[in-house]
């Protein structure tokens, strides 16, 4: 499929259009909210929460027997929440540090989810067939109703992010000072974490629980390379997320048997690599060039002064 026919398909083919819209939604939401996870050094939290979503999804299916996306995503959200609460509990009451606690939660929740998934797959009815797509994502299975659910959830999350822009910025930069300004920092923290859970849930069907955290971290990390302003960073990150989402989802939807998650993650990884090397100011390549140039200039200067020095 060449580029023109691909473009034609995106606009006029029902499946591909749905896939592209869904992937763009996921990219925008996780790209924008992922900035906060990265800036607050909570990249691992996103990973733990997305893995924790798996038992929630399967349990929601086992309890209700439906495969309604909204029901399953609600299960994912509750599980992500429980994981967050468990995390706070572990850090406060034991001597285990945050990184270890996250590792423990990630593996325990994910392991539990895998056991439940095996259990669900033993059920005779055919409804469970689609559950395993939540592992690595399957963009091709998106229908319009899924995209509407994703867009609705994502729009609410982004709207709240914009509404509390100043508060979230304060929370991310200097929480102690924020508390002295009279803002309930713990509540804001919980709120922002909840929004990140929503971003994860939005992307689960498309990218899957295993690689979803990459969609939070990678676009933000790439965007940070290009700008020193939070607003620009969030916008750019949303754009990168959408770009990688659409390209990855299109490739996986047109090629047979390709999971969407890994394809999307490869796309965003390419964007990250490019940004790390070539972004102005922060890019490694320009850094090396600058260093070489400085070194040369200094050497010239030293040489000249040595010559001129009247010994």
């Amino acid at each position: 499929m060449d580029l023109m026919s691909m473009l034609h398909a995106v606009l006029f083919n029902y499946t591909l259009r749905t896939v592209a819209l869904g992937a763009a939604t996921l990219g925008i939401v996780s790209g924008a909210l992922g900035c906060y996870a990265v800036l607050r050094r909570q990249a691992l939290l996103g990973d733990a929460m997305s893995h924790a979503a798996l038992p929630g999804i399967v349990l929601a299916f086992l309890l209700t027997g439906t495969r309604q996306p909204l029901v399953l995503l609600l299960g994912a959200m509750v599980a992500g929440w429980l994981a967050t609460l468990a995390l706070i509990g572990i850090i406060r009451t034991t001597r285990i540090k945050e990184d270890s606690a996250l590792g423990i939660l990630l593996s325990v929740f994910f392991g539990f989810g895998m056991v439940l998934l095996a259990l669900a797959q033993k059920q005779p009815n055919a409804a469970q067939a689609g559950l395993s797509k939540f592992l690595f994502g399957q963009a091709a299975s998106l229908v319009v109703r899924d995209v509407i659910t994703m867009a609705g959830l994502g729009a609410v999350a982004l709207l709240l992010m914009l509404l509390f822009w100043k508060e979230f910025k304060l929370l991310s930069f200097d929480p102690d000072f924020g508390a002295t300004q009279g803002f309930p920092i713990r509540l804001l923290d919980i709120g922002l974490t909840a929004l990140i859970v929503v971003a994860i849930v939005v992307g689960l069907q498309t990218v899957g629980v295993v690689l979803m955290s990459a969609m939070l971290v990678a676009p933000a990390a790439a965007a940070r390379q290009w700008t020193d302003r939070l607003g620009v960073m969030v916008t750019l990150s949303a754009f990168f997320g959408a770009l990688a989402g659409v390209i990855g989802a299109m490739i996986s939807a047109t090629a047979r048997g390709m999971s969407t998650g890994p394809t999307v993650v490869l796309c965003i990884s390419a964007i990250v690599m490019f940004s790390i090397f070539f972004a102005p100011n922060r890019g490694l390549v320009w850094n090396i060039v600058r260093q070489q140039r400085n070194r040369q200039r200094l050497r010239h200067k030293v040489d000249r002064e040595l010559v001129l020095e009247p010994e």
Binding site: L39, R41, K169, S172, F173, D174, D176, R224, T227, D228, R229, L230, V232, M233
Partner: peptide, 10 residues
């Protein structure tokens, strides 16, 4: 030292 001075702001 209590904040990250690499935060994207001026």
């Amino acid at each position: 030292g209590s904040v990250d001075w690499d935060f994207p702001t001026n």
